[in-house]
Design a protein around this nucleic acid. Structure first.
Length: 240
DNA sequence: GCGACAG
DNA sequence: ATCTTGTCGC
């Protein structure tokens, strides 16, 4: 898939903040996404080998509704940017971009670990990713960055809106009965209702939607392989 | 000044 | 997220 970069990533936190100011106006709203048009969904995740200041990324494309893996890519990159709440995309996207560029699939929706517009400046990781990928994205986080919400009902599918500055920026969604809710956030070119429906359709027996869970597992594998290579003294590229 | 704070 | 051991519950 094609990635369009309109700004550099080797920035200082304050420069990154300036970039967000310019990018936020490009995040688009969108009419309901027709569920039957969603045939491919991409899950993404990034993990770190803190000791090596290295970031490992994985992207897994799944078919819908089967949720079978269609394509899987991985990439890595040096960890240059610090973790600063609100600037996560500048820390994680650089490592993930090569994997996205290598992806042959053309996903209809992309899931990202983090927030979308439920962000202090309206441009969290998911929204930022949506802009450079030019596709609909959904922020899929395990906790909240900004906003308020009421505890959703106890059954799978129950949800409550995540409100921020008087806007509905996401939702606390119970993806499984009996587990803590996950926090969806509108990313780019998608509406909240569609994001909720799509996410539920992608969730099977785990708290996180399948593409996200698989991307996370892939990252764990990458880490293990990486450590193993280090011990063996080898340094071959991993996974396609 | 204090507390909160995606991953 | 990462660093870490055991432990409570379905």
């Amino acid at each position: 898939m094609r990635i369009t970069l309109t700004h550099p990533f080797d920035l200082s936190p304050s420069e990154a903040r300036d970039v967000q100011r310019l990018l936020r106006v490009q995040v688009e709203e969108a009419p309901p996404l027709r569920p039957e048009k969603v045939r491919l969904v991409l899950g993404t995740d990034v993990s770190y080998l803190r000791t090596d200041r290295l970031a490992l990324a994985a992207a897994v494309c799944c078919s819908v509704p089967e949720l079978s893996v269609v394509e899987q890519r991985a990439s890595e990159g040096p960890l240059r940017f610090p973790y600063v709440p609100g600037l996560l995309s500048f820390r994680e996207l650089p490592a993930l971009i090569p994997a996205l560029q290598a992806m042959e699939c053309e996903p209809d929706v992309i899931l990202a670990d983090g927030q979308g517009v439920a962000h202090p400046y309206g441009i969290g990781l998911a929204s930022h990713l949506g802009l450079i990928a030019g596709r609909p994205t959904i922020g899929c986080a395990k906790s909240v960055l900004v906003g308020e919400y009421e505890e959703p009902g106890p059954v799978r599918g129950d949800w409550t809106p995540l409100m921020y500055l008087g806007r509905r920026v996401g939702a606390a969604l119970r993806t499984r009965t009996g587990v803590k809710p996950i926090f969806l956030s509108v990313g780019h070119r998608i509406d909240l209702e569609s994001a909720i429906q799509v996410t539920l359709a992608l969730t099977r027996g785990y708290r996180l939607p399948e593409p996200q869970r698989l991307a996370h597992l892939a990252c764990e594998q990458l880490k293990r392989a990486h450590r193993a290579n280090q011990v063996t003294g080898r340094s071959e590229p991993l996974l396609a």
